[in-house]
């Protein structure tokens, strides 16, 4: 085995030992962890954010309300209970425009709007991203495949107090007449943190 496999195997055994003892001692149950994982697979994930953005794209008045009072606008839609739950208690949407590109970062750790985007992906948690995005965002975005010209203002949002931001990306050309469901299908988690644009699949 390589050193890397040892490290991962050890962690896998260690966490299983811990979970096992916590169950034996009555702290959690044999199903607690599975239920938490399932919650983020079924109820709270980026599929919620995609529906919100798709609605904002087809309904400019809704978009306005979303930017002005994000929780109230989210509450208008038919989601499972919990859109103002853990890590979504105080969310705020910011919109990309032809003149402004927004990028969300949490330089101190990994604050992320769970109900709308689910759990933070590795790139967002990566200390290298956190270090660089706040100082050279265009360079980082270029490495991610997104070229933001100097004529476009970049706004980097460092989320470190109690507000959780997400981005309403721009609607791509070629989607005129699409249904909200069709639109939601092409909206990625990365685009809702400003790390990518939404593109129409070829």
């Amino acid at each position: 085995m390589s050193e890397n496999v040892d490290r991962e195997t050890y962690s896998a055994a260690r966490v299983r030992a811990l979970e096992s003892l916590l169950i034996e001692k009555g702290i959690i149950t044999g199903e607690t962890v599975d239920k938490v994982i399932e919650f983020f697979e079924k109820d709270m994930g980026p599929f919620n954010g995609a529906k919100i953005v798709a609605k904002a794209w087809v309904d400019p008045e809704y978009k306005q309300r979303l930017l002005e009072d994000t929780p109230a606008a989210i509450a208008e839609l038919n989601f499972p209970r919990g859109m103002a739950g853990a890590e979504g208690e105080n969310m705020k949407a910011v919109a990309n425009t032809p003149e402004v590109h927004n990028l969300i970062v949490c330089t101190m750790c990994s604050c992320y709007p769970w109900p709308v985007l689910g759990l933070p992906p590795y790139w967002f948690k990566d200390p290298t991203f956190r270090a660089r995005a706040i100082r050279e965002p265009r360079k980082v975005l270029k490495e991610f495949g997104l070229d933001v010209p100097e004529s476009v203002e970049v706004r980097v949002w460092d989320t470190s107090a109690q507000i959780r931001w997400f981005v309403v990306p721009e609607r791509p050309e070629g989607t005129e007449g699409w249904t909200e469901e069709q639109l939601a299908n092409i909206i990625t988690p990365e685009s809702m943190q400003g790390a990518a644009k939404v593109v129409v699949p070829a």
Partner: peptide, 18 residues
């Protein structure tokens, strides 16, 4: 920067998160 889009890169990570 790595553009690793997965939330968990090892299955055990889900357990400690839970």
């Amino acid at each position: 920067s790595s553009f690793e889009k997965r939330v968990f890169v090892q299955p055990w990570e889900q357990r400690i998160f839970g």
